[in-house]
Nucleic acid binder design. Structure first.
Lengths: 336, 336
DNA sequence: CTGTTAGCGCTTTCAA
DNA sequence: TTGAAAGCGCTAACAG
């Protein structure tokens, strides 16, 4: 049923080697022969079998993208950026949803290697020793997104989480807020740790004591933002502002405020993180920390591409893209 | 560097055929030998090369998922459902973003065939003759999502778009609305056509004349919902309700209403479609047509799986999953 | 039950 | 410039 290189060779009256050569332009072929081959290729509508090719070349034009889940718009945009950038260069994206589970991550990593993926983008909560070990042993190009490898063994791209959280918190403080809740994530995630540090430092720098009770560990979902909000807003010594680890969390928190009879921003300021498209359209629009998500994805792809091309010559890079505080309507000066 | 079946055979003192047999359980192998092989496999940390396997078996444990884009939460959840369901069965998902471009779709389809994908899920605006042709010529299992193949040559899964739109419109009419705008999509999409038909029929059935000026063709984004809203709400004979083709569009429309000094739902009712997670948390919560997105994804995966297993014996199925009108706060009785 | 062998479709020496 | 032939790592007859 399927046309192979053999059929082409036969019909064009050349050897399969020649066909291969004109297809890959790997060696000079006389013009006459080349044209004849190309003509037959067209006539037969021949598509080279990429699996056979992979087997020899040990490459697949496949890129693995490991993500913790895809329901967060931040992540879908990131994935979309990667897909689009790689598409331009003829690579296809393998989507691997790890659900933040190390076993699944490792499972996928193995599977990707088996499939000769040419590289992988890892968007994970924290690089585990097992990850490091894997990439050290396997020499598959990788870029870590959303955290930086301090030892610079691997490439990474991210924003400065510490500074971003610091800036956001400081902004809130400048608005007059003194009690600022932090709707963060589990403390195991480097991202959370960094942001928590930034938040604490901003507090300290402005003479505010960190209050453990104001820290809510949750995941990045609307649901958890809502639940934490419902808990927090029920208390007596409510904060005047809450800083959320993601816009999704902020959506939940705002809803919780409303359900608790609190108005945003009059009664409570809510600050988001990411600046997903919805943040702008929401009512009120989110004051949030903008991450250049799409750009992050594009550059992650480009770094990986570079790495794939340069192989051993490639020196790991650690890119930090700028964040920005976007001021919209969800945070205002504290009213006395 | 890489361990092959040969290394295992050598170390276990058996032939490579035997190793293959214990790994695939394709033929009986004596317990003693099997255990020895397994032991060596463990020691060497051997992972069979799936590319070589694909070359022979003409299967890859890969599933192609073609989608028009991923920024819409509806689609990300759909993709997530598919990924998770296939993960359980050891298939990996190839993400193909077609941007609604037929050329890209075809490009991906060819590429997927080359890679011996075991099946594809096609979420596309409309099945073009070229698609049909492709699947007819190539016998790769496929399920069309989000529209039904009338001729039942291929499997499909969807909700009843006609009825869903009909129900939504009727609900609005029952609330007293007579002028209901339809924020739809391009008329080329079957989905849009069906929903438009449902909308028109509901109008007709209640003695309301269809007004072409109330139909806004747009894409499924927040942006376009916003733009259309800004246009519509500026007019003099504003409708009292707008029915949106997606929740994303509804978000934009609501924002536009606010920017035009209109309150939702007091001044204008806005009805969404999809019931993405945000719809529930939004203020006001969206009254919307719920699609069982996740379930749609899971069942699409299951149908494909069945098809892959049964091969020629498989008879195409056309599944319709139930929709539901979810009543929340964005639509109210028309005030006189 | 186990081993030998012939490919899957393609790339790439090595000769010519 | 071109062709013959040797694999890439694995599966599946076919023998034994």
């Amino acid at each position: 049923m399927d046309i192979t290189i053999k059929d082409v060779a036969l019909k064009a009256n050349v050897s399969i080697a020649t066909v291969s050569r004109v297809l890959n332009q790997s060696k000079p072929v006389s013009k006459a022969v080349r044209e004849r081959v190309l003509k037959v290729v067209g006539e037969l509508n021949f598509n080279p079998n990429s699996v056979a090719r992979s087997l020899i070349m040990k490459e697949s034009k496949l890129i693995g993208v490991l993500i913790p889940g895809i329901e967060n718009t931040y992540i879908s945009i990131f994935v979309q950026a990667i897909e689009e950038e790689f598409f331009k260069h003829n690579y296809t994206t393998l989507l691997c949803n790890t659900k933040r589970d190390t076993d699944i991550e490792l499972h996928y990593l193995k599977l990707l290697r088996e499939k000769y993926v040419d590289g992988v983008v890892l968007l994970t909560s924290a690089p585990k020793p097992k990850h490091i070990e894997f990439f050290e042993n396997n020499a598959v190009p990788v870029v870590f997104a959303s955290h930086t490898d301090k030892q610079r063994r691997f490439s990474s791209i991210n924003i400065d989480d510490y500074k971003a959280a610091y800036d956001a918190t400081r902004y809130l403080i400048q608005l007059g807020h003194r009690r600022i809740a932090f709707f963060g994530g589990p403390r195991m995630y480097v991202q959370v740790i960094r942001r928590l540090e930034g938040y604490k430092q901003a507090l300290t720098d402005h003479g505010i004591e960190y209050d453990e009770k104001l820290y809510y560990p949750l995941d990045y979902t609307i649901e958890s933002g809502y639940e934490s909000g419902m808990k927090l807003f029920r208390q007596n010594d409510k904060p005047t502002a809450v800083f959320c680890i993601s816009d999704m969390v902020a959506i939940g928190a705002i809803r919780a405020a409303d359900d608790s009879g609190l108005r945003v921003p009059e009664d409570i300021s809510v600050m988001g993180f990411d600046d997903i498209p919805i943040a702008k359209s929401y009512l009120p629009g989110f004051t949030t920390v903008r991450q250049p998500v799409y750009e992050l994805g594009v550059q992650a792809a480009q770094m990986l591409l570079k790495q794939i091309r340069q192989k051993e010559d490639y020196a790991p890079e650690a890119k930090i893209l700028p964040h920005e505080i976007i001021i919209r309507g969800s945070c205002i000066k504290v009213s006395l």
